[in-house]
Nucleic acid binder design. Structure first.
Length: 102
DNA sequence: TTCGCAATTCGTCATCCGGT
DNA sequence: ACCGGATGACGAATTGCGAA
């Protein structure tokens, strides 16, 4: 697929993020954190939240990619039919235009 | 039935890139 | 500069299938 430094794949649609995944609870405000234990808990919570979001993002990314590939495949099918017709048409015109050698 | 293998799916990490 | 979303890469888990 697109190289890391390449252009954006056409199947990517950047949508604004809205709701949090179900079951995710916002943390208390940072100002209310004190002990190292609380800080550690907060770090763990943040990590779990990040993993959960990335998991969902990966699913969505793969879904879009599949859709994109399907779309490309159906376009290939259409173009193949079109190409076949054009080749046939060309052969017909060649027959009509070629001088009779006889 | 079960074993081995290939293909597919999934979760995670690393990185890039755009927005603030 | 920092943050967060998108995605490629990778390894682990799962699935499907033919051979024994």
């Amino acid at each position: 697929m697109a190289a890391a430094t390449g252009d954006m794949p056409t199947y990517q649609i950047r949508a604004p993020t809205t709701a949090l995944p179900q079951g995710v609870v916002m943390a208390t405000s940072p100002g209310s954190l004190h002990s190292p234990q609380q800080l550690a808990q907060e770090a763990t919570r943040k990590r779990e939240l990040r993993l959960m979001k990335n998991r969902e993002a990966a699913k969505e990314c793969r879904r879009r990619k599949k859709e994109y590939v399907k779309c490309l495949e159906s376009r290939v099918a259409v173009l193949e039919v079109q190409n076949k017709k054009l080749i046939e048409e060309l052969e017909t015109l060649k027959d009509i235009c070629s001088p009779k050698t006889d």
